[in-house]
Design a protein around this nucleic acid. Structure first.
Lengths: 228, 228
DNA sequence: ACAATAGTGTCTTTAAGACATTATTCA
DNA sequence: TGAATAATGTCTTAAAGACACTATTGT
C-alpha cells in the first residue's frame, strides 16, 4: 500500500439496496424516482452516500437507507457485491456496495408516484448501472433460494405450508410437488407448528395449520427445488 | 441521494486479495510483510489503493495488484465482499473490496522474507481486519468447492484423476470415495482426456491418464463431496 | 511374484419424483 | 353431496456410499 496522505481524491462511496418482495405470487422490486441530478426523474434503487460521521460500516449505512426509504427493519439483508468504475456515476469514479433485502409485502409502505414496486419482467430504464445490480440480486435470490430459507423471509411470521411452497415456487420459477416439498421441509426441521393456530380458506376446504420458521440453519445441503 | 459536491471527504478505497494455493496437499494463503505504516512489519493480504486514473473498476485494480505482487495472471479471481468502517484502518473511514484468487502453486513466486505462503492453521497476526477477510475467503472456497470447479483451478493445466480428487479433498477437508468421485466427474463431463498423454508414478504402479478441464459450467447442482 | 497405483463393477441405502388416496371444511 | 383445499401413503427412479475386484506398471 501507499503513503498516508490520500484524502485528496478518494472514490465516491454509496450503498444501494435491491429490496424484493412477493406480491400476488410474483417477485417485485422496490424502486424510487430520483428527485435530483444525476438521472433526475429516472427510476433507481433506494440508496445513498455513506456518511462517515454516522455509519459504523456499509451495513449500517444500508440499514439507515432502508429505515428512511422503506420504513422498516428486522428483515433479511445480505451484501451482494460492490460495483465500481469511473463512468457508472457521472459525478466521478464511484463505488457502490450493493445489498439485497427481502421484505414481507405487508411491511412495505403504500405505493406513491415516487416509490413503488415493479415486476421483475417489466422494469423501467434504471439510473446508473442499477440494472446490473438488480440482476445480481435476482440471481442471488434464485440461486440461493433452493437451498436456504431465503424465500421464507418473504412471508410474515406465520404461514401455511401452501404459502411456503408458493414462496419457493415464485422464487425458483418452477412448480414443486406438494408431497416431496412437505417431506423435505419436515426432514430438514425447517418449520414448527404454531400450536392451536389454523387458517380457514375463503371458499371452503380443510383448514390449514399455521407454521413459523424454526431456529434452523438458514442454508442446507439439500435442495427444496430444482437445479442451480 | 444527496447533492453534487461530495469530493471533500470520501472514504479511503482499497482492494485486497486472499490468494490461495495448494502446497503438499494443504491450503495455503499468500501474505506479505508491510513495509510502511500503518501496521509496518505486520503480515497482511496483498492489496493496494484503487487508482482512479488507471483502474477501470475494482476488478482491474485487483488484477493490477496480483500482477505486481504475485507476478501472474489468468487464474481464477472472484469478489468476496466489501469490508468497511471507521476503525479498521487507522488512517480513517475505509472500505476494502476483497477478492479471492486461486492460483496453481507453480505460478507463484519463490518465498522471500517479505512474501510467503502460510498454512491456514498457522496464520500470524494480521494487519487491519485481514483475519476476517481470510476467513471469508476460506469459507467461500470451502462452501462453493463442493459444487464447482474451483478446486480444479488450483491445479495446473493437466492433472491426473487422483490429483483432482486430492484437490477436492484438501478443499473440502474430507476424504472421498474414488469410485463415486470418478462416476460423478464423468457424468458431469467436467474433464476431458488429453489424448495420448500419461504420467508414470515415481515408484511403480499403473500409469495414469492425464486430463484437462472441459469447457463445462463451473458450478453445478450436484455435489462432489459432503455437506455445505 | 509382489508392491504400488489406476481404474471398474456391483450391491445397498437413501433421496427424489410422480401420483393416488384420505381428511376436513363450506355451500 | 360435491367442490375446494389440506395432508398423507406408496410405488418407481435416480443418486450416493461402500467396498470388492480387475488392470498395468516397476522392482
Amino acid at each position: 500500500m501507499a503513503e498516508t496522505d490520500t484524502s485528496f481524491s478518494n472514490p465516491i462511496a454509496t450503498v444501494d439496496a435491491v429490496i424484493m418482495t412477493l406480491e400476488q405470487g410474483r417477485l417485485r422490486v422496490l424502486l424510487h424516482r430520483r428527485p435530483n441530478a444525476p438521472f433526475a426523474g429516472a427510476w433507481a434503487l433506494p440508496g445513498g452516500f455513506i456518511r462517515e460521521a454516522e455509519d459504523a460500516d456499509a451495513e449500517a449505512a444500508i440499514a439507515r437507507v432502508l429505515r428512511d426509504k422503506a420504513g422498516a427493519s428486522g428483515f433479511w439483508v445480505e451484501q451482494l457485491a460492490t460495483f465500481s468504475g469511473p463512468v457508472r456515476d457521472p459525478r466521478g469514479w464511484s463505488l457502490s456496495v450493493a445489498f439485497m433485502a427481502l421484505v414481507p409485502r405487508g411491511q412495505l409502505p403504500a405505493a406513491t408516484e415516487e416509490l413503488r414496486l415493479f415486476d421483475l419482467d417489466a422494469l423501467p430504464p434504471l439510473a446508473f448501472d442499477h440494472d446490473r445490480i438488480v440482476a445480481a440480486g435476482v440471481s442471488r435470490l434464485r440461486g440461493k433460494g433452493a437451498y436456504s430459507t431465503l424465500p421464507a423471509t418473504l412471508l410474515g411470521d406465520t404461514f401455511t405450508l401452501r404459502e411456503l411452497q408458493d414462496a419457493y415456487e415464485s422464487v425458483l420459477g418452477q412448480t414443486l410437488d406438494p408431497s416431496s416439498f412437505r417431506r423435505k421441509v419436515a426432514e430438514l426441521r425447517l418449520i414448527e407448528e404454531v400450536p392451536g393456530a389454523e387458517r380457514r380458506p375463503a371458499s371452503g376446504g380443510r383448514p390449514s395449520k399455521l407454521f413459523r420458521l424454526a431456529e434452523s440453519p438458514h442454508t442446507f445441503d439439500r435442495t427444496l427445488g430444482g437445479a442451480v
